[in-house]
Design a protein around this nucleic acid. Sequence first.
DNA 1: ATAGCGACATACGCTGTGTATGTGAAAGCA
DNA 2: TGCTTTCACATACACAGCGTATGTCGCTAT
Lengths: 227, 227
Amino acid sequence: MPLAAKRRAETMEENRLKLIGAARKAFAASGFAAASMDDLTAQVDLTRGALYHNFGDKKGLLAAVVAQVDGEMAARAHQAGMTAATLWERLLAEGEAYIKMALDPEVQRIVLLDGPAFLGDPSKWPSQNACLEVTKQAVADLIGKGIMKPVDIEAAARLLSGTALNAALWVAASEEPHTVLPKAIEAFRLMAEGFLRIEPDITQGILTYPSPRLPVPGAAKLPSLER
Amino acid sequence: MPLAAKRRAETMEENRLKLIGAARKAFAASGFAAASMDDLTAQVDLTRGALYHNFGDKKGLLAAVVAQVDGEMAARAHQAGMTAATLWERLLAEGEAYIKMALDPEVQRIVLLDGPAFLGDPSKWPSQNACLEVTKQAVADLIGKGIMKPVDIEAAARLLSGTALNAALWVAASEEPHTVLPKAIEAFRLMAEGFLRIEPDITQGILTYPSPRLPVPGAAKLPSLER
DNA sequence: ATAGCGACATACGCTGTGTATGTGAAAGCA
DNA sequence: TGCTTTCACATACACAGCGTATGTCGCTAT
């Protein structure tokens, strides 16, 4: 009985995931507007019937996809932050992680372009924008410790993550992303330092370990994003 | 002959402008994807025939609209910058102008959301993104004078204008935009100050006139945006 | 064992885009 | 001025895609 009961809900969840997976690929490839639901569902041997039953409508599917990708991004950013030696470097590492993640076409099209355009402002997404929560946490810690100027947490977090993601859009659209990426990261770092209470070069001696950038122990694998 | 000859091209330009005007309203109201070309054209007593003849396809019309709005934004930002007492305050004034402009639903939906989603990265727009050019100019001046750290001009300009527009998206989506706006402007100012070579409070004495914010001579009228 | 429910498929209508063709008025030429 | 040509735009058509209403089969519960 429990086995049968599980089998039922199990295959349903399976189908949900199959649809979301197919949608990720289709949305990233063609954009949300151009993606055909018929093609989408056929690719995983289902029909639009399954889709409308599970997600309500096309935008519902987009919301589900966005939530998944956003969650993965937040996890990755958090992970990147964990490896930093200081709180401040944690914020920078998270920002840098955002920038690099947004080079992924899936993240770009789905979360940065189509998401806001079709679902509205990220802060009102059903996924609660886990991404932003991570940054908010880091900012709150930094303000609490007096490292950052006492600005509005929401404002700082929004602008920081927004700036990082915006930087990535620029990098990805540029001709040689590889040469532009470091410039974007550097500019982001400088802008972030605007929130510091004291000059960053002084900061170096006080807030960070004087040792050179320590090689970070094997960046543990996280949910896909590069599968 | 010249009168007749003018009459011909004249009405065509007239129709182009009527279509662009109707599109601005429709795109701002429903979003690019949901806007119907039939409705659009009917509102100015034309048909889709005129539209496809003038703009090629739906995206062509969007591009034309974006170019127009972007141009108006650039003019406004430039105007806002002219009133500043110092080069540095000029940059801040332009950024603040971007933030305030982006509160306009037309700017938001068309230039910030649908534009990037359907036309790709702003830097590759046919309009050349006049908006960004203004910021680049200000940044270049500031670096030239040694006020800003010698960062990549393109990077700084992209992140600054991107941050400003992103801040506006947040403000507009918030519950009480009026209380959030100053927070956004303040956070933007701080981040911009990250590009300064010296501390901003020191800057106050050196780079700006000590006099209080001088009242600016009647902000000359610029192309619509608020009609 | 059977009635009920639920997950998904099938079938239909409608809206909207893009294109191919038609038309009337301005423009060129004598 | 009278004719032809051109061109801006309208009309007509083909087709794809979304959403919904209805059908069906298998699981679940009593």
